[in-house]
Computed example of a mutant assay.
Amino acid sequence: MAGRDDRGALAALPVSGVLLEKGSYRARLALGADDVLAAQRLRARCFATGTVDQDQFDADCLHVLIECRSSGALAGCFRLMLLESGQELSQSYSSQFYDLSRLVGFSGRMLELGRFCLDPGVLDADVLRLAWGAVTSMVDRQGVALLFGCSSFAGTSPEAYIEAFALLQHRHLAPPLRRPGLKVAEARSFTDLLQGRSAQQKPDLKQAQAQLPPLLRSYLAMGGWVSDHVVVDAALNTCHVFTGLEVTAIPAARKRLLRGVAEPL
């Protein structure tokens, strides 16, 4: 479903709504209100926000469901908002929390990936793999140049993820000309969080990797970058960092793997 004038984008999508089928799962677009409601209920379970998680951005997004092919059970979901360029960034969910003025001049198409949820009871790695295959399919279909969104850590205590933030500051900050600025009061800079550490202290890589959420690990493995601060979002019981991934920066080997998943059997 899409509330904006996305006829051009939607025209390139499969009429059936099915983006990808592999193994036991399929990724498909939500085709009506019942599908969107199912995604909102899964989001509520994952974020502990009540019976339904919904906001004003849902109407402007494409919703993708990852479901079991045999039973139809929902294993995961996410939503996508297509922007023609950085001039449209003010319409995005992320712009509520981050000053994205350094990205306004970005001329290529952008895709915001949000509300990424996996059913806590589903431990099959193929679900995450299929989700990224579906995202890859959308990126290629729509000629997207920049993928972005908020990567969430569970809970509202950034101190629980010190090693992860040390790693992000050490290796994965956005380039200065792309770096999001502070916008909300409920934010903590990495520098502030790491005040007690010496400049020579390196992050504990094993702990850092364990603390990073799977979605963010995937972004970083493809060359993604993050804001230099974390936003505490009490409404969703999370803290998150802005994450960007320029498609041209993805290593060739990683692109081949992603497109291998994205190709239909």
Rank of each mutant, 00 (worst) to 15 (best):
A187C: 05
T51H: 09
S189A: 08
A234C: 11
D140A: 11
E112I: 01
V144E: 05
G149N: 04
K206D: 14
R69S: 03
P14D: 15
L236R: 07
L245E: 01
P175T: 08
G133V: 11
S189P: 02
A59R: 11
G108H: 07
Q87L: 12
H63V: 03
L19I: 07
F106Y: 06
S92V: 02
V64E: 01
S157M: 15
H170I: 06
V184C: 06
R45M: 06
D140K: 09
L167W: 03
P175S: 10
L215F: 06
L146N: 00
L113K: 00
L89Q: 04
P175V: 11
A48F: 09
Q209F: 13
L118F: 00
A235F: 15
A131N: 02
T191R: 07
G260W: 07
V135M: 03
A48E: 13
P180C: 09
H170V: 11
Q91F: 10
L194E: 03
L83V: 05
L194W: 04
A154N: 12
G121V: 12
A145C: 15
L258C: 11
M1P: 01
A48S: 15
T238L: 05
A30S: 07
M110A: 09
A160Q: 14
Q207D: 13
G223F: 12
G50M: 03
T156K: 07
Q207N: 13
E112P: 00
L19M: 09
A253V: 15
R188Y: 14
S95H: 13
K206L: 15
F148E: 03
R79Q: 02
T49W: 13
E159Y: 08
L167Y: 00
L42G: 01
A2I: 14
P214S: 10
A2C: 15
L13D: 04
A235T: 14
L42D: 01
R43Y: 06
P176Y: 12
Q96M: 07
R188M: 13
S16D: 14
C150G: 02
L193T: 07
A48C: 12
E67C: 04
F97W: 07
T156L: 05
I162S: 15
L82D: 00
D99I: 12
L123Q: 13
A164H: 06
S137Y: 10
A12T: 03
L257P: 04
D55P: 06
L80G: 01
G133D: 05
D126A: 10
V231K: 00
L29I: 13
Q96V: 12
P120N: 07
Y219V: 01
Q211L: 09
L74Q: 03
L80W: 05
F78L: 09
G260D: 12
V52I: 13
T248H: 15
L257E: 12
L130M: 08
P175N: 08
L19E: 02
E67W: 02
G72F: 11
L205N: 07
L111W: 07
F165I: 08
K206A: 14
D53V: 11
Q91P: 03
T238D: 02
L42R: 01
Q207F: 10
H170K: 12
F153T: 00
A75I: 00
R141L: 14
